[in-house]
Design a protein around this nucleic acid. Structure first.
Lengths: 345, 345
DNA sequence: CTGAAAGCGCTAACAG
DNA sequence: CTGTTAGCGCTTTCAG
């Protein structure tokens, strides 16, 4: 197809644009970055030459020379969780107004991978780092502290942050839900959740939950934890198992909306009276719930808001408008939906 | 909290490790990169010093000096679509075996954003670029061609690729589904999909679909397109509308599993005989479907496989094992589920 | 096995 | 408004 002998292509540099336009490299650089005053005529010539050549500046060299990098590292455990894309949405929304750009790294809930991802990210000297969770290995904390980069830990404020932190209190969220459930008169309460060692936030929610139950003289009547597979499917199957095993349950609290939805679908098929005979609640406030036959009760953890606030902190730190650590606690909000508020008996 | 007067912290460099270990910068560099022979003793000293200082190498400088960047740019339209995380999973799986690392950019189906994202990505001189779709603005194609970087366009092979391409033929996928539907004896077929100008893949599927219908002397009996909002909810509402408007429909083809699931849930509530009175099919083969009361028919587009193949091409190009463009067409596979195969009449 | 010198492509800082 | 001169922190290359 291509018959011209290909000359060994030397990567294009500023110099090429400089030569093509007859303007010094420095001025070309100014034009391309919109910095300093350049005459309209020169600007045009440079822009035309750059476009003609299809020149894309080398940010590696630029970053090295200016020690400025417009990247914000975002470290999250998973993309398939629904939750994290929402947070990312909030981050992007705010960063889009700035010159900063998010770069995503995924850890799959593995501490080793987290260390590696953070190391890789930091080695590009980003303008900031946003990371899900507040539990990290010592090595991670050390790196983050040593990096001299603004860090925002998100989605959990219960613990000792490295720098700034934005999110809900997961323990409090668990307590709030327990209290709401108890207030509606439910007493035989089961819990269905993700395997905890992996997910500190789910664990803390569960702890807050059992705490509040204990204070009311109750305890979890049955519990089970899963890992892997379709959450919807798991919710369905595990709900069936649990209801068979513990027949007198009158409530199931799920650690996320997806398994909750699975449970809800199962219950509706079985024509179980919801929430008369059995109440249900999930966690996250995902939009998925709007399409279910009944709206599952849930708790909005303010994911987009969390992302936005975290990004605002990074942006403010990057341009020097902010110099100290911040702590922003987002208020979780119970959504009663159709499965938590009991009909007056 | 911190009472020590903070000395104006100069970012840490190789030199610091060099001084701390009493070894030349060059040798430190060798140790940290595992290149060339270094005596075990020296290696230990260097490693200890680096760890002690919490040194993280500056990849910017490294990349500039070596003109090697271990980043692979991955450009996708959206993260909330279920589909793209799966592709990313495949990509990551393969790249994890190499020294390469994916970096994700999101375009929100906007050509302008796509241009910007590509430009930003290329300015970091990645080792390769994987991008969803085969339709790009001229500016994008020009940049990609000029960049001298291996490019893999994915998830659609119908068109003129810039370089390599991996994915299904969307037109063919549409045709296959139409043929399967016709074969089952359905005749009054509706289509419910996403707004098309944004999503070329959905458009091509639709075109292939109507093509195959036409060849069988049929046409789409009703159609509607949506944008925004919860897909599950939209599927429910739009299915209701369409069934009210066109009462004699005997099949609805959805452009993705999520709206399909919404439609399915609606139909089950209405106790519509599925697939006796009405057949349904979605697209993508998402694991979501496993948890539904009935398994929605769908088509597996080989997302993870697509991601893996794309990553393999980039990896092979990066280490010189491959020098030419490749074209890999993935075979889509119909999953009949419970909603497409009609009971023998 | 180890080190010294020269640059990667750009921008800061200064001088016209 | 435009150009010149030094690096940015590493790695390449070549000498010990």
């Amino acid at each position: 197809m291509n018959e011209r002998p290909i000359p060994p292509r030397r990567p294009m540099t500023l110099r090429d644009v400089s030569e093509a336009s007859g303007v010094s490299e420095m001025t070309v650089s100014r034009v391309l970055r919109n910095r300093g005053d350049v005459s309209a005529a020169t600007r045009e010539r440079v822009l035309a030459a750059a476009k003609e050549l299809g020149y894309v500046p080398n940010k590696i060299a630029g970053a090295l020379a200016s020690s400025r990098v417009n990247l914000v590292a975002v470290v999250i455990p998973s993309l398939s969780n629904m939750v994290f894309p929402d947070v990312l949405g909030g981050i992007t929304e705010v960063l889009d107004e700035t010159h900063l750009q998010p770069v995503v790294g995924v850890t799959n809930y593995s501490p080793e991978r987290e260390e590696k991802v953070i190391y890789e990210m930091l080695s590009w000297r980003p303008s900031g780092l946003i990371i899900a969770g507040i539990e990290h290995t010592d090595a991670c904390r050390k790196m983050l502290a040593a990096a001299d980069v603004p860090v925002v830990e998100i989605m959990d404020v219960d613990g000792d942050p490295v720098d700034s932190v934005v999110g809900i209190s997961q323990r409090r969220a668990g307590r709030m839900m327990a209290e709401a459930i108890i207030k509606q008169g439910f007493e035989r309460i089961g819990f269905l959740g993700t395997q905890m060692p992996l997910d500190h936030r789910a664990r803390k929610r569960f702890e807050g939950f059992t705490d509040a139950l204990a204070r009311a003289g109750l305890e979890v009547a049955d519990q089970e934890f899963y890992s892997g597979g379709s959450s919807l499917q798991k919710g369905r199957l595990m709900t069936e198992e649990m209801l068979t095993r513990t027949e007198d349950l009158d409530f199931i609290y799920y650690s996320n909306d997806m398994i909750g939805a699975g449970g809800l679908l199962y219950c509706m098929e079985q024509e179980i009276d919801i929430p008369g005979r059995l109440g249900l609640a999930g966690f996250n406030g995902t939009e998925l719930l709007d399409g279910l036959p009944r709206h599952l009760a849930t708790m909005d953890a303010g994911r987009a808001e969390t992302g936005r606030e975290a990004a605002r902190i990074i942006a403010a730190r990057a341009d020097g408008a902010l110099t100290e650590s911040r702590r922003i606690e987002i208020e979780p909000r119970i959504d009663y939906g159709d499965t938590l508020r009991r009909y007056k008996p």
